[in-house]
């Protein structure tokens, strides 16, 4: 496959794929291999001298946290959470974004006006309010609703890209030809227009995954992200920041995990862009 070859040509893209790949592997099998339970609280361990979270050691390579839980186990389990946060929120954002963007670009006129207005509103809408509102209104605010919040934050960016692309494609000849042949709107959109959006969409979606992970960390910092005891990396960094100067590992390792993962997705997105964008070929 051409794209595959393109991607594997770039060192950075390969690095990105390796990072994302290892994240998936860790999320998949890590929890089965890890000897410690990420949820097992051990207050005796906290109380034991020297008091507090325990520094990295042979049994706990990343140390333990303020409830005596193994940090490595929590980071490994957290990779699942991170993957879910990134990907599922992206699916929601892409779902809404593609629908809105396609409708706006395809129909134009007042549909476009309303959707553009919605997009502007979404850009100007404070993310923190969205998070507080969603978490307060739903009866059982578990982690699924974090995905929804992130999706609602991210859709407008995707919609804008899709809309622009659809506007460009709509006037192309094959679309007009399909219309002349009597194809329905839905068919034209799905068959002829959307496939032409896949390249920028794939790039935007990959970048969106990276963005979601960062946004979740930010929301956690404000206390609006995942809820304890879920080992979300954002939550772990936030918990660890109070220990920054004395128990560095509580903040450092989850922070590194976030940075590496986001880096991985961004690199992958870059690689995809380079591979899919014909203008950048044969550099």
């Amino acid at each position: 496959m051409g794209i595959w070859k393109e991607i594997t040509c770039s060192k950075l893209a390969v690095a990105g794929m390796l990072l994302v790949g290892s994240l998936i592997v860790i999320a998949g099998i890590g929890p089965f291999i890890c000897p410690h339970d990420p949820f097992e609280i051990d207050l005796d361990r906290v109380i034991a001298e020297p008091y507090g979270p325990k520094a990295p050691s042979r049994t706990h390579p990343f140390g333990t946290d303020d409830l005596g839980r193994d940090l490595l186990a929590r980071i490994i389990y957290g990779s699942r959470v991170s993957l879910q946060i990134g990907v599922l929120a992206m699916v929601i954002a892409v779902g809404i974004g593609v629908t809105m963007g396609t409708l706006a670009g395809y129909f134009g006129g007042w549909v476009d006006m309303i959707i553009t207005w919605l997009m502007d509103t979404a850009f100007a809408f404070p993310a923190a309010l969205l998070a507080i509102a969603v978490m307060a209104i739903v009866p059982n605010p578990d982690i699924f609703w974090i995905f929804v919040v992130l999706g609602l934050i991210g859709w407008a960016g995707i919609a804008r890209i899709v809309r622009g692309r659809v506007l460009a494609v709509r006037s192309e000849e094959y679309a007009s030809a399909a219309r002349a042949l009597g194809a329905g709107h839905v068919r034209i959109m799905l068959r002829h227009i959307l496939p032409n959006c896949t390249a920028p969409l794939m790039v935007a979606a990959t970048m969106n995954v990276a963005g979601n992970i960062l946004t979740e960390a930010w929301l956690s910092f404000l206390g609006l992200g995942a809820q304890p005891p879920i080992p979300s990396w954002g939550l772990m960094v936030t918990e660890g920041q109070a220990y920054m100067s004395t128990h560095y590992w509580m903040c450092l390792y989850p922070g590194l995990a976030i940075a590496l993962t986001v880096l991985g997705w961004n690199l992958l997105g870059d690689g995809l862009r380079d591979a899919l964008d014909p203008r950048l070929k044969d550099v």
Partner: peptide
């Protein structure tokens, strides 16, 4: 005081 540091 940041949590976890009082003893130290």
């Amino acid at each position: 005081i940041p949590t976890g540091q009082i003893q130290a």
